[in-house]
Design a protein around this nucleic acid. Structure first.
Length: 224
DNA sequence: CAGTCGATCTGCT
DNA sequence: GCAGATCGACTGA
């Protein structure tokens, strides 16, 4: 059962990882570095690795679209901690989504992992994700990616550079010509418009989630 | 292919 | 009580 996470973290975190320092920058600067990186989750339910193809930057307390906008709560505490950790939250009553915490402790900036390509453990990912007809859909969308990797609330706050997680950044950022940016998905108001291109993806990658504009919710009771 | 809706956790009013 | 960093099923063309 529980009680495992706190134990191994103290044992493994002996040496400072250079890659961890590369995350200690504003999320908008880390975004192009994270594209093309690989995140592996390896536990007794299986081993799956995903090559990240789409991310979204959330910029902390001043960002109305961020969970951190209204200050620190029990749920978002991880966002306010040190970079190089995973912030996992539960949303819409059904789905988990995962962020890579960036910047300095207290800034609460991070990158939402929006999509990726399964590069290891395809059979395990298919088992976890059942319905999709195409493998390209296995991790297309933040909740799908989390499910394919087997991420859940138990991994909230987990170190990205220690078991059961492994984040491998590319030696150099991908060619800027291969990176596109645009407005964030599903975020209305400030930061949701084209004025802030805080969504980044690998151009023309088939695993990138299709853009859906944030739609204002219209009450259905108006016309009876 | 595009539009609509249900599921039901979390934090804020 | 309500809206939300969503997904999958269903509808109609």
């Amino acid at each position: 059962m529980g009680g495992v996470a706190a134990g191994f973290a103290t044992v493994v975190c002996v040496t400072a990882t250079p890659d961890r320092n590369r995350l200690a920058l504003p999320a908008t600067q880390v975004a192009p570095l994270l594209l093309g990186s690989t995140l592996t989750h390896d536990d007794d339910t299986g081993r799956v690795a995903v090559r990240i193809t789409e991310v979204e930057a959330y910029l902390g307390a001043d960002d109305p679209g961020s969970h951190a906008f209204r200050g620190q709560t029990a749920r978002n505490t991880t966002m306010f901690g040190n970079p190089g950790h995973l912030y996992v939250y539960f949303t819409y009553g059904m789905h988990y989504c995962a962020n890579v915490v960036c910047g300095e402790a207290g800034q609460a900036t991070g990158l939402l992992l929006r999509a990726g390509e399964i590069v290891e453990g395809l059979d395990v990912a298919r088992e976890r994700r059942k319905s999709p007809r195409h493998d390209v859909d296995l991790a297309r969308g933040p909740a799908r990616l989390a499910q394919a990797l087997g991420l859940n609330r138990k991994l909230d706050g987990a170190d990205l550079f220690a078991a059961p997680l492994t984040l491998t950044l590319p030696a150099a950022p991908v060619d800027p010509d291969l990176v596109s940016s645009g407005p964030r998905v599903g975020v209305a108001g400030v930061g949701g418009g084209s004025e802030y291109p805080w969504r980044y993806w690998l151009t023309d990658d088939p695993t990138v989630s299709r853009y859906r504009a944030a739609k204002p919710r219209i009450p259905r009771t108006v016309n009876g």
